[in-house]
């Protein structure tokens, strides 16, 4: 048996420490240890994007990263997207207002991917949005309202002065 490793990951600004099996996936660390159950699992082949979170600011599928690879890094999940607790980030708000969800299962991952896009690109076209979320599957909405939500979110972020971020190089420790 491979020995457990002690890791510490900052999840939504809070340090979470645990002894974990080296094979534990980041998504399971987030859900079972950090209690961030808003991050979902929808597949076992890195296709669906339901597990998307920000790792050091960058959108990643947390089912394809080991928890130990995220040791001493920062994770933002859907629960930590809004800077003010209890309030919604403009992307979250625009998904509510534009009916960008039905069952709500793909939603967290979809919002994180949308947030990442809007933080890194100005004046996004519809095609760019469609491509940016092509790694996130939604079986309910037909994507139309999701696209509308993201377009609307861009406007709202601009209005709120939520600005672009420099792309950060993320190298996942192997």
């Amino acid at each position: 048996m491979v020995e457990n490793r002690h890791i510490s990951i900052t999840v939504n600004g809070e340090r979470k420490e645990a002894d974990v099996e080296p094979r534990m996936l980041l998504v399971h660390f987030l859900r079972e240890i950090a209690g961030s159950t808003g991050t979902h699992v929808g597949c076992d082949t890195t296709n669906c994007g339901a597990c998307t979170v920000l790792l050091d600011g960058r959108a990643v599928k947390s089912c394809t990263i080991l928890a130990v690879q995220a040791d001493r890094r920062k994770i933002t999940t859907i629960e930590g997207l809004s800077k003010e607790p209890g309030k919604m980030h403009p992307v979250q708000k625009s998904f509510v207002d534009n009916h960008g969800l039905q069952c709500g299962y793909c939603t967290s991952g979809m919002i994180i991917s949308a947030y990442w896009l809007l933080k890194h690109k100005k004046n996004v076209s519809e095609q760019e949005i469609r491509e940016a979320i092509s790694g996130n599957l939604c079986r309910c909405t037909g994507y139309d309202n999701i696209i509308m939500s993201i377009k609307d979110a861009e406007k709202r972020m601009e209005e709120e002065g939520d600005t672009l971020e420099e792309e950060q190089a993320v190298t996942v420790r192997k």
Binding site: T37, G38, H40, E79, S82, L101, G104, T107
Partner: peptide
């Protein structure tokens, strides 16, 4: 809370979210 608001905040309780 409105259902949509619950889901966009990641506060849904799907069956896998239940821990006992």
């Amino acid at each position: 809370m409105d259902l949509s608001e619950k889901f966009v905040k990641g506060n849904g309780t799907f069956v896998d979210d239940i821990h006992m």
